[in-house]
Design a protein around this nucleic acid. Structure first.
Length: 568
DNA sequence: GCCGTTTTCGGCCCGACTGTTTTCAGTCG
């Protein structure tokens, strides 16, 4: 069973306990455990079989036993028992804004609601407002939420970031602005964002709120006041602008950058030192001091500054307290891009255009890795064409000084783990990327064998987008990444963080696990046009969220040093 | 239910908003 499936079971169990009226700390404990399970880079099923599940933070003896039972029988006995008295449909209802466990429980006991359909009917019949604590407004909210078609999908980082940066830059020049920053999950460079948070200090808050409402990207301001405003963009993305005095800008930025879990852990740790942290300042013995910068907030708490990408409660506070935070890889550390396409396959630009664009971006080398013969989508490169391409690149390099194009391929890994060019042709290339583009639905065992076979091929330098996922669109294919990582470490084969914002594959969790296992990671744009070389920033975001340093990332090296990692 | 440089028992982040109340519980981020 996958980590995410196990985590889903414990999320459901937490919701059931909550509806049952269990003490909140027990509910929180199950949610914390579910997060740890979901974010484990190693297989929790495997850990459980080895009796090591309790090594996960937030998983103790009780939850470890429940994991074992789940793996054994497919269900958690405690969850089955709860479902006998609490309809599982109520869990869905708690996802409607404004309907928490207490109120949903009331709907169940008072008017017998057991599902979203029941709720819809009750709202249409006007029976909701008869329940104690519910009024006309509550009934209207429920109707609106149900008519709305449920929760909005989260926005991909690339869209959210472009939007957020446009909004912030649109306000930065305003005369009332003293400081302004994009905060929230966009600043943490998460894969997707629910909303955008903008934090500002202003000499005239009302004027800034007015200017905010007039930005061309804003469709409608839903509420506003001296402290800020809430609005929706034309795409329907909620935006929250918060304004504070300049003296506490650092506190507010820290608070609204989150994550919620990071802040919770930060405050818990602070309480042990007798300090109380909020968005307004740090309080000790009822004296509150404000911080103009985030650096001051962390310093005040005896911690090293924590980069936004690390603020996910994944051990960053312990590391910050010990001075052991990683020196995260930066965009300017990246020397080359080892996965790109040209018009020879399905790219939009020529070899020379791609090389020029890469050079303009400050890179020293670019591998051109057009799709191989069995790609099956758009144009592909036959063996003879690939030989001509190698010659073309050699000639082209003679015209360059201080930049190098590498002759490469993105060769298809076939279901049996072999690739679709002969070895003697692969041997003529500078760089060989291999990836899966077809037959996604193999069993986990078959897919794992396929990947490991490719990794063991001595001429394959890197496995690209190793799980095949598309964020919010396609699940990773079934593959045992523990084995893939082990094989990559053993054979010095690189694993890619594909920087396409739809992919970001490896994900941060597995990239961290792979680097820990000693695998060299590549961050590649997989650009299909000159402009998408800029996608490197999203791959970098994933690498930073995976705690990677420049040393962990192979393409921070010169081509000569990188080549030395993969001797032929 | 978890966890321990103040604890193996007694804690477990902080503040704002909302609706339906006559002083606040529930919900949210």
């Amino acid at each position: 069973m996958k980590n995410s499936d196990i985590a889903d079971h414990f999320e459901e169990l937490a919701a059931l306990y909550e509806l049952d009226g269990a003490v909140s700390y027990r509910v929180i404990a199950y949610r914390t455990a579910a997060k740890a399970i979901r974010e484990s880079g190693a297989s929790v099923a495997e850990m459980s079989r080895q009796g090591r599940a309790a090594e996960l933070p937030g998983v103790g003896k009780t939850i470890a036993e429940k994991v074992a039972a789940l793996l054994d029988t497919g269900t958690i006995p405690a969850a089955e028992k709860l479902k006998a008295k609490i309809p599982v449909g109520l869990v869905e209802i708690t996802k409607i804004p404004g309907l928490g466990p207490k109120r949903v429980r009331l709907l169940h006991t008072e008017i017998g609601v057991t599902s979203l359909d029941d709720l819809k009917q009750a709202a249409e019949d006007g029976r909701l407002k008869d329940v104690a604590g519910f009024g006309a407004k509550a009934e209207e909210n429920v109707r609106a939420a149900l008519a709305d078609g449920g929760p909005k999908p989260r926005t991909l980082l690339s869209t959210a970031l472009a939007l957020g940066e446009e909004l912030v830059e649109g306000l930065r020049g305003h005369p009332a602005v003293l400081r302004i920053e994009l905060a929230g999950s966009a600043r943490r460079r998460a894969e997707t964002c629910k909303d955008l948070d903008i934090v500002a200090a202003a000499s005239d808050p009302a004027a800034l709120v007015e200017a905010f409402g007039e930005l061309s990207a804003i469709d409608e301001v839903t509420s506003s006041g001296q402290a800020g405003a809430k609005a929706l963009t034309h795409q329907g993305v909620p935006v929250d602008l918060r304004i504070v005095p300049e003296a506490s800008f650092g506190n507010l930025l820290q608070h609204f950058t989150g994550s919620g879990r990071h802040n919770e852990a930060l405050r818990t740790a602070a309480v042990k030192r007798g300090l109380h942290v909020s968005e307004y300042g740090v309080t000790e013995d009822s004296v509150t001091t404000t911080c103009a910068t985030e650096q001051e907030v962390y310093e005040r708490l005896g911690l090293d500054y924590v980069e936004p990408e690390l603020r996910e409660d994944r051990g960053e506070l312990e590391a910050a307290a010990k001075g052991q935070l990683p020196d995260l890889v930066r965009l300017e550390d990246i020397r080359g891009d080892l996965h790109s396409h040209t018009v020879a396959s399905d790219g939009r630009n020529t070899l020379a255009e791609m090389a020029g664009a890469a050079r303009d971006r400050g890179l020293d080398y670019l591998a051109v890795t057009d799709h191989s013969a069995t790609h099956g989508f758009g144009n592909h490169v036959t063996p003879d064409e690939l030989r001509r391409q190698i010659e073309r690149i050699a000639k082209f390099n003679e015209t360059l000084d201080g930049f190098r194009v590498l002759a490469g391929t993105e060769t298809n890994v076939l279901p049996d783990g072999t690739v679709d060019y002969e070895d003697d042709l692969l041997a003529e290339l500078d760089w060989v990327v291999a990836s899966v583009h077809t037959s996604f639905r193999l069993s986990e065992k078959e897919m794992t064998e396929r990947m490991v076979t490719a990794i063991e091929h001595p001429l394959i330098d890197v496995i690209a987008h190793p799980t095949g996922r598309l964020i919010g669109k396609r699940e990773p294919y079934a593959v045992d990444l523990d084995q893939v990582i082990e094989a990559a470490a053993r054979t010095s084969t690189c694993l890619e963080i594909n920087a396409n914002p739809n992919r970001r594959d490896l994900s941060e969790v597995y990239a961290r696990e792979a680097a820990r296992a000693g695998v060299k990671i590549l961050i590649d744009s997989d650009a299909h046009g000159a402009e998408t070389l800029a996608n490197m920033r999203y791959g970098l975001a994933t690498a930073r969220r995976a705690w990677l340093t420049a040393d962990d990332v192979a393409n921070t090296r010169s081509w000569e040093d990188l080549r030395a990692l993969r001797p032929r």
